[in-house]
């Protein structure tokens, strides 16, 4: 389904995407792509401790639109391909690199790595690997905010189409529907879950059709189109924020990289790569900027150079930072130290 129109008319609530907003989003998108390219290079050079690198290539337009639509006080639980959204939500390149390169100064201090990072106190929740598990956690934060009388808050979380097959997805959406929470559930249907095509993942026509069963408002969007993503996400977030209940956004796109950098993705159907969803959202948005004269070729290249410089500087900084030290590590998994068990004191 390549419908680019939200099923709830957006026009009245959300104006057309302005040049300013588009440019702001584009810069995050570009920075995320450049950071991903650097992470891939570091991976190939064997500089990533522990191994895995998971990239968001092809998914940045969608991801950045989620992050940029949220504001301070909101809750965001991104997933593995959300580098762009994380930056737009307020993560720095240094913070991201620290977690990927194993700096002890990183948000998880080497106790967890790569995409598993966040700052829960700031509403930025660190994913666990188990797909679908973050949805109900976001629900819980939103329930707590309701207990505390906070209004106008939104929670957003992201998942691939494969993750929608979990029981946790069903329980999480049903719970948000029952509690009528301001949750925006973003599903990136990038056509493959690792190597599994959508035909082996679900049997409904569009995942957006599931919205009705959970009491969600459905939205479908072309995930390669930055302007459309900004519009639809802006609209979904606005609806959730203004008391219209939970929203389900399903984006169609194609994963333009391996599942991880270890994977050559040779299983991806070449016809999909040549189809409309196989287009690169970065290239499309650059075209959009040029066609609208919102940027010149020269500016585009300057921005890329600036992003590369920022990433290189951050890498240089983080590579000098200390790694975690097993001898000074506090091997205690409990906040209440007196309950520590066997050897953890």
């Amino acid at each position: 389904m390549l419908s680019s129109v939200s099923e709830v008319s957006a026009a009245e609530i959300v104006p057309q995407v302005s040049k300013d907003e588009y440019l702001r989003a584009f810069r995050w998108l570009l920075l995320a792509r450049v950071l991903d390219e650097k992470l891939a290079a570091l991976y190939r050079a064997g500089k990533i401790p522990g191994g895995g690198v998971y990239l968001g290539k092809g998914q940045e337009a969608l991801s950045v639109s989620v992050g940029i639509s949220l504001r301070t006080g909101d809750v965001y639980a991104p997933l593995i391909r959300d580098g762009a959204g994380r930056l737009a939500f307020g993560e720095t390149v240094v913070e991201a690199l620290r977690n990927c390169l194993g700096s002890v100064l990183g948000p998880m201090r080497g106790r967890d790595g790569n995409v598993h990072r966040g700052r829960p106190r700031d509403g930025y929740l660190p994913m666990i690997s188990h797909l679908g598990a973050m949805i109900s956690v976001v629900n819980g934060v939103l329930m707590a905010k309701r207990f505390k009388g906070q209004k106008g808050v939104v929670g957003a979380t992201c998942l691939g189409e494969g993750g929608t097959s979990t029981g946790a997805f069903h329980e999480g959406l049903n719970q948000a529907g029952v509690e009528r929470l301001p949750l925006v559930m973003v599903v990136a249907n990038n056509q493959y879950a690792y190597s599994t095509p959508t035909s082996r993942q679900f049997a409904c026509k569009s995942l957006a059709d599931r919205a009705q069963g959970y009491g969600f408002t459905p939205h479908s969007v072309d995930g390669t189109n930055l302007a459309e993503c900004l519009k639809v996400l802006g609209h979904a977030v606005a609806l959730a924020r203004t008391g219209n209940g939970p929203q389900l956004v399903v984006a169609s796109l194609l994963r333009l990289c391996g599942h991880g950098e270890h994977d050559d993705a040779s299983y991806i159907d070449p016809r999909l790569k040549e189809s409309e969803i196989g287009r690169d959202c970065l290239e499309l948005s650059e075209e959009h900027l040029l066609v609208n004269s919102w940027a010149s070729k020269q500016e585009l290249s300057q921005w890329r150079t600036a992003a590369q410089r920022a990433v290189e500087e951050a890498v240089a900084l983080v590579q000098k930072e200390p790694s975690p030290d097993p001898y000074t590590e506090n091997w205690c998994a409990l906040q209440t130290g007196r309950f520590a068990e066997g050897g953890s004191k």
Binding site: I135, N139, F147, E171, N174, Q175
Partner: peptide, 10 residues
């Protein structure tokens, strides 16, 4: 699953 997840979020 969602009950415990929500408790963690809260």
């Amino acid at each position: 699953d969602a009950i415990v997840g929500a408790a963690v979020g809260a």
